[in-house]
Amino acid sequence: MSRIVTVGAAQMGAIQRADSRAAVVKRMIELMRQAAAHGCDVVVYPELTLTTFFPRWFMENQDEIDTFFEREMPSNETAPLFNEAARLGIGFSFGYAELTPEGRHFNTSLIVDKTGRQVGKYRKIHLPGHREPEPWRAFQHLEKRYFEVGDLSWGVWNAFGGLAGMMICNDRRWPESYRVMGLQGVEMIFVGYNTPRHNPPAPDHDRLSEFHNQLVLQAGAYQNGTWVVGVGKCGVEEGCEMIGATSIVAPTGEIIGQSLTQEDELVIARCDLDLTKSYKATTFNFDLHREPDQYRRIVEQKGVIRPSAD
């Protein structure tokens, strides 16, 4: 019997610094209602959904920085989203900036099931950008300054009739993000991102922004026999253009649904989790074909070989 999960990938258009959380949550609820009307089991939102992408500014005042963080979840501002999801009987996943009771700062995402229960939390591990301000940039990318490296690894949880996991933005570019979950049998990965089109250290990459996004989502899906739901925040946000290209990718590596705009948009697909089985049992049967001992032996014998800087 097939295990169908109907997914709504809820792309978000630009969120400006002046936009309130209440206004953003209202937009999220509208997309959630659309998803429920189309029979979705889960709706997936981007990284740092509740605010503008604040690491593009250098801020020294910690109180100012902390205004972008959530001290509890659900909070007063996000409670309407949780309440509406419970009323509609739909699950969801979204990203936000988390400030823990101990004063730690993380780029975080969570999974909430159809009953309104939080079943999974992930904290971003591969933090891109830089720690100190670089005035020559058109905008900053100070994730290394404002966030700690995530401390929860890549978990996999029972949700929506299968095994679901999460990663955030830059994690999607690194094969180990997918592989750690793949080794746990993951069947669907939710990926939220805020990706600027312009890459200040390497502007020659700009024309390939969408291509590279699709490349890593498709490769990660195929190489681990899993569905991947990649959801972007997009449009011109505080003068910075963000890519969209929200996509739902099958375990075959094929894109079966993709956004067409740079605005709030819902992409819907019926995803059969059983489609993962043939890939996990044949080409990517890790127990049968993967040779981790050989990798360790090579590293132990030869070390990590890096190209010369010359």
Score class of each variant (00 low, 15 high):
300 E>R: 11
235 G>A: 04
234 C>D: 00
280 K>G: 03
257 G>F: 04
243 I>C: 02
274 D>Y: 09
273 L>E: 01
296 R>E: 10
245 A>S: 10
276 T>V: 10
270 R>I: 02
298 I>A: 13
266 L>H: 07
292 P>W: 09
253 G>R: 01
266 L>Y: 06
290 R>D: 15
286 F>K: 12
251 P>G: 05
288 L>W: 09
302 K>S: 14
294 Q>R: 15
295 Y>W: 13
233 K>S: 10
267 V>F: 01
252 T>N: 12
286 F>C: 04
258 Q>D: 01
249 V>K: 05
258 Q>H: 13
272 D>N: 15
260 L>Y: 09
292 P>G: 10
263 E>F: 08
239 G>Y: 07
241 E>S: 05
242 M>A: 11
257 G>K: 13
257 G>T: 12
264 D>A: 07
300 E>H: 13
288 L>F: 08
302 K>V: 11
247 S>N: 08
264 D>C: 05
301 Q>D: 09
252 T>Q: 03
246 T>L: 01
292 P>H: 08
301 Q>I: 00
235 G>H: 05
269 A>N: 03
273 L>H: 00
244 G>D: 00
251 P>C: 02
260 L>K: 15
252 T>I: 04
265 E>L: 02
238 E>I: 08
270 R>G: 09
233 K>A: 10
243 I>Q: 03
260 L>C: 12
240 C>F: 11
278 S>E: 14
237 E>M: 15
264 D>R: 06
249 V>A: 03
258 Q>T: 13
297 R>S: 12
287 D>N: 08
269 A>E: 14
263 E>K: 15
299 V>K: 08
263 E>T: 15
242 M>E: 09
278 S>I: 15
246 T>P: 03
275 L>K: 11
266 L>F: 03
252 T>A: 06
250 A>G: 00
291 E>F: 09
274 D>T: 11
253 G>V: 09
277 K>Q: 08
233 K>T: 06
233 K>Q: 12
269 A>Q: 14
265 E>V: 01
239 G>C: 09
271 C>L: 07
233 K>W: 00
249 V>R: 04
263 E>I: 07
271 C>F: 10
260 L>F: 06
250 A>K: 06
270 R>P: 03
284 F>Y: 14
268 I>E: 06
240 C>I: 15
239 G>F: 08
256 I>A: 04
291 E>D: 11
266 L>P: 01
261 T>F: 02
261 T>H: 06
255 I>F: 07
279 Y>F: 15
257 G>Q: 14
297 R>Y: 09
273 L>M: 05
285 N>F: 07
274 D>R: 10
301 Q>W: 00
288 L>N: 12
266 L>G: 05
300 E>D: 14
268 I>R: 10
286 F>L: 12
271 C>A: 00
248 I>C: 06
260 L>S: 14
244 G>V: 03
246 T>Q: 03
266 L>C: 03
284 F>V: 12
240 C>H: 12
242 M>G: 07
295 Y>V: 13
278 S>N: 11
298 I>V: 15
256 I>D: 05
275 L>V: 03
265 E>T: 01
293 D>P: 00
259 S>Q: 03
265 E>A: 07
242 M>H: 12
256 I>Y: 05
253 G>A: 01
285 N>S: 04
272 D>W: 07
238 E>Q: 15
243 I>R: 02
